[in-house]
Design a protein around this nucleic acid. Structure first.
Lengths: 110, 110
DNA sequence: TCAAGGTATCGCATATTTGCGATAACGGTT
DNA sequence: AACCGTTATCGCAAATATGCGATACCTTGA
């Protein structure tokens, strides 16, 4: 799980606790909004977040999606860039989400 | 070019004119905001819009991206669902955009 | 009508992703 | 320490996307 560099060590095993630590413990909304934009764009991180929020292990999500744990692990690897929309849609569907994709102009075009 | 059903017939050939017709002519901002949400989610349509806004033909964009016209045509087909992020990133890059991806909960989770 | 530019579609070789098992590694618990 | 659940990584077969030329289609303008 190295989709974010700042996730050095987690010592809890319960997904809810982890989330709590990452999002609530330190500063209710502060850190979240700071990292928000950056993280929203990271596909790997979004999958991880949604999965753990749902309280699922990679293996459990894999079963829902119809694949195997190693595939989920690969998708949550930030260094992996080979995502396809079909796979992302499958993941999203299993997690009751929809995929939103936008091509936004780099400098605001008009 | 069938990424949207309502694009029955276009009779202009200039990309700028087409855009003008679609976005400005009828109602300055009205129609745009109506279709906005729906269209934003259609990858094919976004590629088409950005390409034509840039005044490029499929062949021209293909050259920028480093592929061929038929590939662009395939990507702009709304029925095509086999997009990969790598390809989308290449397209976006050529059009000076960045790719934004979000998995949004279907019914607001918490 | 014909020509030209643009787009859609087909087929196939190549490249990349997915599927999946095996296994290593890590952390927590007893 | 040994066990257990979880995740990371490897290798390879199968599935899928891309690369690309050829060609048909469509619309506009001469």
């Amino acid at each position: 799980m190295r989709y974010l560099e700042d996730m050095k060590k987690k010592t809890t095993t319960d997904a809810v606790k982890i989330l709590h630590n990452r999002y609530i413990k330190n500063d209710p909304k502060r850190l979240e909004s700071l990292k928000e934009e950056r993280e929203k764009l990271k596909i790997a991180g979004q999958i991880y977040d949604l999965r753990t929020q749902a309280g699922l292990s990679q293996a459990q999500l894999a079963k829902l999606v119809g694949t195997t744990q190693s595939v989920i692990s690969r998708l949550e690897d930030a260094d992996y860039s080979g995502h396809s929309f079909n796979m992302l849609r499958r993941i999203a569907s299993a997690l009751h989400c929809r995929v939103e994709v936008r091509l936004v102009p780099e400098k605001a075009v008009s």
